[in-house]
């Protein structure tokens, strides 16, 4: 096909099937078990040793997959935080109705006096 000898456009280069194992040689493992434990603590999650090992492997696989993006030539491209080129999406300062009475707490696991009830946190 006509792709031979031509430069690939950036958009089609960005998503390709990972070339799997060949990358392990080029990129060292990035996530350690310590980091998994640290992030789990920040997220208030508790895991068994087995789970920690599994998540370490899985997170590394994900990172490897995302590493593919480094192959794209981004010379002259400004870093963006959004996929769409949109700025200044504003609303006017107008009050709209809030949720009807009672609906705000419809999903509350526990409530009291129209408040969400949570375990006390002491400082």
């Amino acid at each position: 096909m006509g792709l031979q000898g031509t430069k690939r456009p950036v958009s089609s280069a960005s998503i390709r099937k990972p070339r799997a194992l060949s990358h392990f040689g080029r990129y060292p493992l990035k996530i350690t078990k310590d980091q998994v434990e640290y992030v789990a603590h920040l997220a208030r999650l508790e895991f068994s040793e087995q789970e920690k090992e599994r998540f370490t492997t899985q997170l590394n696989d994900i990172l490897l997959y995302v590493e593919k993006l480094n192959e794209v030539d981004t010379t002259g491209v400004e870093p963006e935080t959004h996929a769409i080129a949109l700025q200044n999406a504003f609303r006017d300062d107008i009050v709209r109705e809030s949720l009807p009475h009672g609906l705000s707490l419809a999903n509350a696991p526990s409530e009291s006096g129209n408040c969400f009830r949570v375990p006390k946190i002491l400082e």
Binding site: S104, S112, G113, C115, F116, R117, V118, P119, K120, I121
Partner: peptide, 14 residues
């Protein structure tokens, strides 16, 4: 957050 004086609860008003 409104802390309950007697019980181990806090109440949240958003």
């Amino acid at each position: 957050l409104i802390h309950d004086e007697r019980n181990p609860w806090s109440y949240v008003d958003f």
